[in-house]
Design a protein around this nucleic acid. Sequence first.
RNA 1: UCCCCGGUAGCUCAGUUGGCAGAGCAAGCGGCUGUUAACCGCUGGGUCGUAGGUUCAAGUCCUACCCGGGGAGCCA
Length: 457
Amino acid sequence: MVREVLAQGRADSETELFGWVRTARHSKSLSFLELVDGSCMAGLQVVVEPSLPGYEGIRSLRTGCALRVSGRLVDSPGKSQSVELHAKDVELIGDVDDDYPLQKKRHSFEFLRTLGHLRFRTNTLGAVIRVRNSAAQAIHRFFQDRGFLWLHSPIITALDAEGAGEMFRVSTLDAGSPPRNDSGEVDFSQDFFGGETLLTVSGQLEAEIGALSMGNVYTFGPTFRAENSNTSRHLAEFWMVEPEMAFCDLDGDAELAEDFLKCVIRSILEDCPEDMAFFQQRIDEGLMERLDRVVSAPFERLTYTEAVEILEGSGRDFEFPVKWGVDLQSEHERYLTEEHVGRPVVVTDYPIDIKAFYMFRNDDERTVRAMDVLVPGVGEIVGGSQREHRLEVLRERLRHHGLSEERYGWYLDLRRYGSVPHAGFGLGFERLVQFVTGMANIRDVIPFPRVPGNAEF
RNA sequence: UCCCCGGUAGCUCAGUUGGCAGAGCAAGCGGCUGUUAACCGCUGGGUCGUAGGUUCAAGUCCUACCCGGGGAGCCA
């Protein structure tokens, strides 16, 4: 691979490589081919002399051609690379038609999104895919090092996770004329699973089952929301990381979230220095400084009540006025993390009426032990809470939300049989990749974005 | 779903008060003694998003629709 050759290639060694031409420069007496293979940002410069048999064919090579190249690695007299390959044999494996749409110039991300099968070949998407890979590995390593078990929560589910979002239905019924019951409603008892099933919006409830049996667990897999969201921060299919810890309160949860973000970011910086340098240089000038502030300083901790006081005292004229009891808007979160502290902020203890039924009720009975981690540029990257583990309080909360005890029977069972305080959070994997790379649009940090109106491939 | 902006050559864009459709890059051909998004010359390349309308005349003005982007809401 190019990565190996550049990292450890010794001058005067023989080597063979497979890859694609990124750029080809021909002069009268020489041809220069930049060969890339996806293993790293940089390409290897291949120098071809006219004395090589078949040199006429080399002159028609251009961006996109697939090649096998063998030759001798030598110190490069050029400025932009330390070694280069002097070709002894060049085989054209796959030619490109002359309407190849990728050029050796900057393309807009909008245009590249229309070429979902070719955009992987660009510097930026290549770097994103490598950083994404590195981030996924770092996430597993973080949890594995701490004894968390990877729990494979189901993708097809009958739970709606209490209104986390609109859901996609999974069904094998005839969409044109589904069976109906006496009252004219679709009869899902005749469906594949004998009942209505949906794509998961969260593995949290299943993770609680895991945590209350195995201690510390995490889920890491695809998640689906059928919301008609058209923003640079939302996908209909995205990956989510959801740790859940038994014998743990919100403080432990917030601590884990902070350690987690710092560890994963450090790991990526170490693992992908070239890709990160590219993002700093071409995508976001403030990237490294921002990431440094994340890994080097403690996150700010604020209660919701304190956050509201800060916002009220800011002298800012927000579009949505701040008032205790209403949820923080994007502009409020931005002000807190980007301007007030300039680092990630953990906001805790939100009003009970704007949060889900399963969150632990504080003694004041008007707030719950919920937290959001806000980061500059992206906003909410983590949302979590300590869960309500007290049977009677949970029953009361269910009643208050108009939810039936029968439906949540198994959830109540977990509180009847050896219940313990437990807590967890959900992290949007693509939002993490966005934050780490500085990419503006979430559609450019996932290989195959699914958004309203588009699910190509 | 709502608000704002945009759609002109393969790509990135310019196009003035309504008056002959433009540039750079890419492609094709030629040149160039080691290039770095190489460079230099020449050539080809257009249903101006779609459908209507106003006008002697529409890329330009009006209406509707489609698509894209930014912001908001929903959230991760």
